[in-house]
């Protein structure tokens, strides 16, 4: 599913200049098709998250890039960790046991 700029503005009840500001600061990076911005589900959910961080959690504009950057890193780490876990699970049991052994705290 995808949305256009005006639809996102309506859906989230925010001002269009506010949304454009978020895009200018690259907090959200929708793709563009034939000169028109196209928001996919991740863009929409991310815009909603930014609105919540601002309105509900009163994260200021200064702190927002820091928060988003840290969040992006957390998700990148979770993804990498997930991939790694799946890769390990696809290994023979002896390898899995060896890795588990290595991870045990001393």
């Amino acid at each position: 599913m995808s949305w256009r700029l005006t639809e996102v503005v309506t859906e989230l009840s925010i001002d269009v200049t506010v949304l454009r500001g978020w895009i200018d600061q690259r907090w959200i990076r929708p793709s563009s098709t034939e000169g028109e911005l196209v928001f996919d589900e991740a863009d929409m959910a991310r815009a909603r998250l930014i609105r919540e961080l601002k309105q509900d959690l009163s994260v200021g504009d200064e702190a927002m890039p820091v928060v988003l950057q840290l969040l992006d890193q957390v998700y990148a780490l979770r993804k990498a960790l997930g991939d790694l876990t799946r890769a390990i699970k696809a290994c023979p049991e002896s390898v899995q046991t060896a890795i588990a052994e290595k991870l045990k705290p001393n």
């Binding site: 589900e41 991740a42 959910a45 909603r48 998250l49 969040l71 998700y75 993804k79």
Partner: peptide, 9 residues
């Protein structure tokens, strides 16, 4: 509405 984390990974 789904949370962002539904797509983040």
């Amino acid at each position: 509405q789904p949370f962002y984390k539904a797509y983040a990974e």
